[in-house]
Design a protein around this nucleic acid. Structure first.
Lengths: 228, 228
DNA sequence: ATACTGCACTGATCTAAAGCAGTCCTTGGG
DNA sequence: CCCAAGGACTGCTTTAGATCAGTGCAGTAT
């Protein structure tokens, strides 16, 4: 899909208003003005849902380039919260900006919604995986998943990548206790498959890990939108 | 969002070509012509994903009125399969029809994608629940969820509803073994909360069940699209 | 130099749910 | 009428992972 001039202009305008946020404090609280989304420029964010029982399920991680909170301004079901994992930089997008842009360029609207739908599909993929695999496979798969996503934006290789997540983040994302995550990581390390330490993930045996996780390397081939 | 005449016409044209399918045999195999979606007119369908280990995760159930396979023709990631649970009637929608409709009426495209995104959000909701709750709460919640959806299309009340699902379906949807589903159903029955038997779900104590499941009755308030 | 805090890490115990193995009951076909 | 097949149902055993209750260690504040 190639953009018309007008679409390009509209799209560009969305990238104004950069702001920084500090790690740990939820985005909504910081960016109080209720109805905004963000485009993440630098840093990591996680989107999560609190369960009635107090535990939280991390639904997805956002890395630089990802859209963030799109759904919450489109369907005002303020379903998730967002926590910056490190200090981040993000471009703020007001609801009015977006709706405005959509009204003017419906093709753009379709494209954005398409992208949103695709992301959602990946989340489903992830959650399905979480439900069925056992802890070790889950962790292995997760590390590979992240690796693939990061590689797309040039933030990692087959050897490893920088990763600011704590074991608690892993636990909340994978539906495990942090204790168990720790044990599983040790096991992966002892088996010489992967090392998760000091903010860095190292693939000691990428092949072996892929095999263990039954990871499909075609995982996120970016087939562009059909809405040409 | 009110439709223009053209949009109405285009939308109408999608409802041609009704077909029937028999229970148990996958839709894709029956409707071989690879790129079609369906609008379900009568009957129940489940969409599922096979896991590498052979088990399957039922991701969602479709009831009359639901769109079906939308994603597979929009993002050609043929991610799910569809199995009719009973004999069904569905309107076939070819990929070309839809893309055609979208090109002609972008606002319609946005609306449809919006709906798709909303459905997806509900799936996420469901899967998150599956990951965290224990078996009893999971089953209770599921029965209520279904009830709410069915009530919207006039197929059930607070007293109960007709439900063609087997205990195996429940198991695959909730990520439990059928054995365990059976036990949990017995427990719910013995506690006088709900009865799942002979193709019928009866809420013996709706209040109590809602309490047990921590079910949010505002669950699926249909907030319309903002894309007016 | 000392306390406090957050993260990584460990061992021991407990439990929800899986897996196994089988019965009963209904339905439909030969 | 008998047999086969699928769904519902049960008891027993096993296991993955949670929970509890810590230790060790770095970084920062006092």
């Amino acid at each position: 899909m190639t953009l018309t001039d007008e679409e390009a202009v509209v799209l560009d305008r969305l990238h104004q208003r950069r702001r920084r946020f500090v790690a740990g404090r939820d985005l909504v609280y910081q960016g109080q003005a209720e109805q905004s989304a963000y485009i993440l420029c630098a840093g990591w964010v996680c989107s999560y849902k609190l369960q009635p029982d107090g535990s939280r399920q991390i639904v997805d991680f956002q890395i630089p380039g990802d859209f963030l909170g799109l759904r919450s301004i489109l369907l005002r079901t303020s379903d998730h919260s967002f926590e910056p994992i490190v200090d981040i930089m993000a471009a703020e997008v007001h609801q009015s900006d977006l709706l405005d842009a959509f009204a003017r360029t419906p093709r753009l609207a379709a494209a954005v919604l398409w992208a949103a739908s695709r992301d959602e599909a990946m989340v489903v993929e992830h959650l399905v995986g979480v439900g069925r695999r056992d802890a070790e496979v889950r962790v292995a798969h997760f590390l590979l998943e992240l690796s693939a996503r990061l590689a797309l934006v040039g933030l990692g290789t087959k050897a490893g990548y920088a990763c600011p997540l704590s074991q608690y983040h892993l636990a909340d994302a994978l539906g495990l206790s942090s204790v168990h995550v720790n044990r599983v990581l040790r096991k992966l390390r002892e088996q010489g498959l992967a090392t998760f330490q000091n903010g860095y993930v190292t693939f000691d045996d990428h092949e072996g890990l892929v095999a263990l996780a039954e990871f499909d390397p075609a995982y996120l081939d970016q087939t562009g939108p059909l809405l040409a």
